[in-house]
Design a protein around this nucleic acid. Structure first.
Lengths: 330, 330
DNA sequence: CTACAGCGTGCAACCGTTTGCATAATTAAT
DNA sequence: ATTAATTATGCAAACGGTTGCACGCTGTAG
């Protein structure tokens, strides 16, 4: 029913293998033959069956992007979706498809099935999947971790932004603006990137360390901030683990009539589009998610094609200075 | 090298076709045989090659989700990413993969290639792809449009939320709260869903119609709001086309010292997680994006499996009442 | 006891490409 | 002009499953 390579071959008066070679452009073909084949393909509106190609070539022509999202919010987080945009772009340029798979919704190994059933030629994985057992079964199958794994850091292949350096910058900036007592707000400490941000905070902070844990929601950040802001010697500045924490904090400051940035300075990680619409606009440690996605995809393709070994790529972060950290010089 | 169905068959002492039947569970197999086959599969750590399966069965085992995103923002918009989460969930339950493809980054028909090269068994499309030419080539290939197409509305298959009804609800709510002059703020009118929201606004609004166009950004909404709020007889309430418009509007109100909700009432479409963290928290026309994704995926699978005809599904929206529309009863 | 239905399994063709090897055609070298 | 080297194309065997058809076996009915 569907038009196959054989139909094209017959019409062009050549063998199907020749048609295949024309399509793939690997071999040298007489210009005349090539033109006849192209003409036949056009005439028949031929589209190669990618399934058959994949089987014969052993390449699925797809990469998999795995995410562990228990709810839709995690899925729509900017880190993931913006990276995905860039990944798709790189893949498309190479004629590759992008398969997304949520590892959190299925108990049976998503990664294993994508890999062993030949559904993808390579994988982009979240750091939480990096565990000795999985790395064992992954073997030398091409993959890149998007983020820094908690374990096996030097034996795995990953791309991440430098969270530690980002937090250092944030603290240094706040100090320069004249804030004295800087606290760290937000984030389950369980998460690797949070740990690294906290380490950066600790590196750069010279006064008392105040680390305020939250469950990751704005609500909880608000509650925690309300408590700490009413204490005797409260901090006068905060580095927030993400924008959501900053939103909760802002709300608390407002309710307690503590002016930002005059009495309280704020710097937050992650650049939500609305960060600059907050009152006041938030100073941000900006993460170049597009670059992160692009780099990870490109590294993955290098591994798929050249079989290069593990590599680690660390991108630096950027401070976007807005009103929330601009203490008036006194 | 890889272990195939034949290796399993040999070890289990049966023919490979039997193994195939065991895997697919379509035919009746003696329990004893079945057990032997399973044992052999386990022993050899057999994973069926999905590429070969696809070729033989003619089904790729994947659905495609197409999006037209020129920049990363569009990609990470909540509508898309939340629906995607639900779509993936439905697909995974059926053993299907989800391929995402950005139609905006390639001139050569993304849809056509996914379809004709057998890369997917069905497609979820954005309304902007619905054009007579494309529908022609799509023929009876299974697809579902996520949103209401501008044209061919009754001849295509789509799932959408009822934007018109949502806007009506918003206006009625504001009237009930005592606001007199309600304006509509935001959105390029070009977009179909914006047009439908405006129509709803017009249906329910009984005083002068004030429709304020923006380019979709918060900045522009702010500028437009600043202008209109300084006029002689300014509106005392706004229905905003999305949260971004509401953010710009809020900023303008704040600068002009117009208290919300006392002097100005606001209802906005789309429920960003931060909407309730604004000052004041925003009243929202909530769109159940998860349900939208789920319904579209399920409809798609119905089309893939049963070849049911075109269907249109319209989901209703929900008003989430918060402080921004709570005018004090006078 | 024979006949027929129905279940379980094997055989082999087929899905539409790719690709190693062989061969024919062309070009270059002597 | 003859031979060697190179290039262009054909042949046929994979790739790893699925599936229609045929056949043997078991069980029930006549």
């Amino acid at each position: 029913m569907a038009v196959t390579i054989h139909d094209v071959a017959k019409l062009a008066g050549v063998n199907s293998s020749t048609v295949s070679r024309v399509i793939n452009g690997k071999a040298t073909i007489t210009p005349d033959t090539k033109e006849r084949v192209y003409a036949a393909m056009r005439e028949l509106d031929y589209h190669p069956n990618s399934l058959a190609r994949s089987l014969a070539s052993g390449l699925s022509g797809a990469i998999g992007v795995v995410v562990n999202a228990r709810d839709a919010e995690a899925f729509s987080n900017f880190f993931f979706s913006r990276s995905l945009f860039a990944i798709e772009k790189v893949a498309q340029a190479r004629g590759y498809q992008v398969i997304i798979a949520n590892g959190a919704q299925s108990r049976d190994g998503t990664v294993e099935s994508l890999m062993k059933e030949h559904k993808v030629d390579g994988l982009i994985l979240p750091p939480t999947t990096v565990k000795p057992a999985l790395m064992e079964t992954i073997g030398d199958f091409p993959y890149v971790v998007l983020g820094t794994p908690d374990t096996l850091r030097s034996e795995t292949c990953w791309v991440d932004n430098n969270n530690e350096q980002g937090a250092e910058m944030a603290v240094q900036h706040l100090k320069k603006m004249g804030y004295q007592q800087i606290a760290y707000l937000g984030g389950y400490q369980k998460r690797g990137f949070t740990k690294r941000r906290i380490r950066g905070y600790q590196n750069a902070n010279e006064s008392t360390e105040i680390i305020l844990n939250t469950d990751g929601t704005s609500e909880n950040a608000y509650t925690v901030a309300m408590a700490v802001l009413q204490k005797e010697n409260r901090p006068d500045a905060f580095v927030c683990n993400d924008n959501l924490a900053a939103f909760g904090l802002l709300k608390a400051c407002k309710e307690l009539h503590l002016p930002v940035p005059k009495d309280i300075g704020i710097v937050a990680f992650d650049n939500y589009p609305l960060a600059e619409y907050m009152d006041p606009p938030l100073t941000i440690v900006d993460i170049d998610t597009a670059m992160l996605g692009e780099q990870s995809a490109q590294l993955l393709f290098r591994r798929i094609e050249n079989k290069v070994g593990n590599q680690q790529i660390m991108l630096s972060t950027n401070l976007v200075i807005r009103a929330s950290s601009e203490k008036k010089a006194k």
